[in-house]
Simulated assay, not measured.
Amino acid sequence: MQGFRPSFRAVVLIIALLWVVVVTLYGLLKPISNGCVMTYMYPTYIPISTAKAVLSAKYGLYLYHEGWRNIDFKEHLKSLKGVPVLFIPGNGGSYKQVRSLAAESERAYQGGALEHTFYREAYLTSEEGGNADVNDFQLPNQYANRLDWFSVDLEGEHSAMDGRILEEHTEYVVYAIHRILDQYKESHDAREREGAAITASLPKSVILIGHSMGGFVARAATVHPHLRKSTVETILTLSSPHQSPPVALQPSLGHYYESINQEWRQGYDVQTAQTGEYVSSPKLSHVVIVSISGGYNDYQ
């Protein structure tokens, strides 16, 4: 009987441990409910001609078009008059990742604003810090401007592993921003030569949207010395590591991160003379940046 008690205790302990393991595994492996709605896309990627250079020969720039019908690329480019948005993929990413954002954007432009119920569900309650009534919002029947989605093809390179690659991506994004704005000027001039009515003004800036390392590239491009003044005023980053590289395998990666973050810190300093007198506002005072972190379903 005395030998039975230790054996019984051991069995109880093993059963308890197995129960803990099973509960833990269930919590880790159980399916997570996904509140997203399936996005259906009919993508066409229109190549944007670029000048012959080292980086432009290696990388590429595309304009996204949503629709199943065949289109004339030249005529479509000639009709550009929306708000330019540039998507920057992340580590090992593809320029085709722009399709879900661009497709939903086009669908929203064609179909108008969402119903009030959506905004009511997404809005903060008074207990959560909200202080406005969503019913007071006046939603338009249709958005005033279409978003023209561009995307850079960075060859799926692993920018999270090498600082040199990250710098090359930054330089090409700066070039792509200039090329996009130049394309609007070319399209405007082409319509003017044909006698078409010119109503929209030329865009002066490009909205940047970067996923993962692409978000850091967007920030790096904004403080690049060759970027034209005020050509970037809005940045949206998705699951982007801003403070430090996720895997600092090379010193060049950490050094590049430090230099860019230092530029951003200095960009918010008020410009003063040696006497301490006010000279101008911070260099980045015109830039709005929104960083959205990843969720349970974001594994990149």
Rank of each mutant, 00 (worst) to 15 (best):
F118K: 00
F118M: 01
F118Q: 02
Y119K: 00
E121K: 12
L124I: 09
L124T: 12
T125M: 08
S126Q: 13
E127P: 11
E127M: 15
E127W: 14
E128A: 14
G129I: 10
G130P: 01
D133W: 02
D133G: 09
V134I: 08
V134S: 03
F137W: 04
Q138W: 10
L139C: 00
L139N: 00
L139D: 00
P140D: 15
N141F: 14
Q142L: 05
Q142R: 12
Y143H: 11
Y143K: 07
R146W: 13
R146A: 14
L147F: 09
F150I: 02
S151V: 03
D153V: 00
L154C: 00
G156S: 02
E157V: 05
H158C: 00
A160L: 03
A160C: 01
A160G: 07
D162G: 02
G163M: 02
G163V: 02
R164M: 15
I165M: 08
I165K: 08
I165F: 07
H169M: 10
T170Y: 11
T170A: 15
Y172I: 04
Y172E: 06
Y172S: 04
V173Q: 06
V174T: 07
V174E: 07
V174I: 12
Y175M: 10
Y175I: 13
Y175N: 13
Y175A: 14
A176E: 04
R179V: 04
R179M: 05
L181A: 10
D182K: 09
Q183G: 11
K185T: 12
D189H: 10
D189S: 11
D189G: 04
A190D: 15
A190N: 15
R193W: 09
E194C: 10
G195A: 09
G195S: 09
G195H: 09
A196V: 09
A197L: 05
A197P: 00
I198A: 05
I198Q: 07
I198R: 10
T199F: 10
A200Q: 15
A200L: 08
L202K: 11
L202Y: 14
P203I: 13
S205A: 10
S205I: 02
L208H: 02
L208N: 06
G210I: 05
G210M: 05
G210W: 01
S212A: 00
M213I: 04
G214E: 01
G215D: 03
G215I: 01
F216R: 03
V217W: 03
A218G: 11
A218T: 13
A218H: 13
R219N: 08
R219A: 09
R219V: 08
A221P: 00
T222F: 03
H224C: 05
P225M: 01
L227F: 03
K229Y: 12
K229T: 09
S230C: 04
V232L: 07
V232R: 05
V232Q: 09
E233H: 11
I235A: 14
I235P: 08
L236G: 07
L236P: 03
T237L: 11
L238E: 03
L238K: 00
L238N: 00
S239C: 05
S240V: 02
S240F: 01
P241V: 12
P241S: 12
H242F: 15
P246Y: 13
A248C: 12
A248W: 06
Q250D: 02
P251G: 11
P251I: 12
P251Q: 14
L253F: 06
